[in-house]
């Protein structure tokens, strides 16, 4: 968990303005999630307010990275959550969930790989599953549609007609497992076995030139796959448009 946290946020934040983070936090990045955060809060808030209250002309002069960081911080919960744990359970309403119940419902898959089930899938097997269950909507090679195009489009994001696909746009390979497993095929969601999901994921990654034909996908290796557009996202920098 911590490893993922660090990689995700450092990619989005530390990279863009590590000096700001350092000055705000006064120590390592990881302390952000540690409990002494409360003491950092006033300082953090004050700095954000300075960023927010600047007139637009000054803002323009401010580094964009710094501004986006400020607004992103507000958007993303850097301000400490306000609940306290003191009155836990005082209503005594609701019942404890059993391990089995949680296991049955806890279907999400994180970028860290948490939630991925045992099993594996190969590209060749995925080709067959795709042809049988996916091609009718996404086209024989994943480019024809009629539904979302899944393959290709790399290097089009800056063009007038960007093509957003798994290969050109999706930042995490684990999201593929999560989404296909929960929502696909459209007419029979949650009908694929873990091996089938892994294999379709493998085929789609291969079609996008991300893995070789002989790669076998499983819980251990999927989180490590580097997606081409992994660094293509910035935290919400709005307000970004100066009104008159």
């Amino acid at each position: 968990m911590e490893g993922y946290e660090t990689s995700m946020h450092s990619r989005m934040l530390k990279k863009s303005a590590s000096f700001v983070l350092a000055s705000l936090r006064g120590s390592t990045y990881e302390t952000k999630y540690a409990s002494p955060l409360r003491s950092l809060r006033p300082r953090w808030t004050a700095i954000l307010n300075i960023l927010r209250d600047r007139p637009m002309s000054l803002r323009a002069a401010t580094s964009l990275n710094m501004l986006s960081l400020g607004m992103a911080a507000i958007a993303l919960g850097w301000v400490l959550p306000g609940w306290s744990a003191e009155d836990i359970g005082s209503y005594e309403i609701g019942r404890p969930a059993t391990e089995a119940e949680i296991k049955a419902w806890n279907i999400d898959v994180s970028p860290s790989g948490e939630g991925l089930p045992p099993g594996q899938g190969a590209v060749k097997q995925g080709m067959q599953v795709y042809a049988a269950k996916c091609a009718a909507c996404h086209g024989p090679t994943g480019t024809e549609g009629p539904k979302d195009r899944l393959v290709g489009g790399q290097h089009t994001l800056q063009t007038p007609k960007p093509v957003r696909t798994i290969g050109s746009y999706w930042p995490y390979a684990t999201t593929l497992y999560d989404y296909i497993n929960r929502a696909m095929p459209f007419n029979a969601p949650q009908s694929l076995t873990p091996d089938e999901v892994y294999s379709v994921v493998a085929w789609l990654l291969h079609q996008n030139g991300i893995i070789s034909e002989d790669t076998v996908i499983d819980a251990r290796m999927l989180p490590g796959i580097q997606m081409p557009n992994r660094n293509g996202f910035i935290l919400d920098p709005r307000p970004d448009v100066p009104g008159k």
Partner: peptide, 27 residues
């Protein structure tokens, strides 16, 4: 959790592609 889960709906969709090819996330 302690980090975003990066679902399809906050990565492949509902992100705002800018002219420079970068996209706003969690907008």
């Amino acid at each position: 959790g302690s980090a975003p889960f990066m679902t399809r709906w906050e990565t492949a969709k509902y992100t705002d592609l800018m002219p420079d090819g970068k996209a706003y996330q969690f907008s």
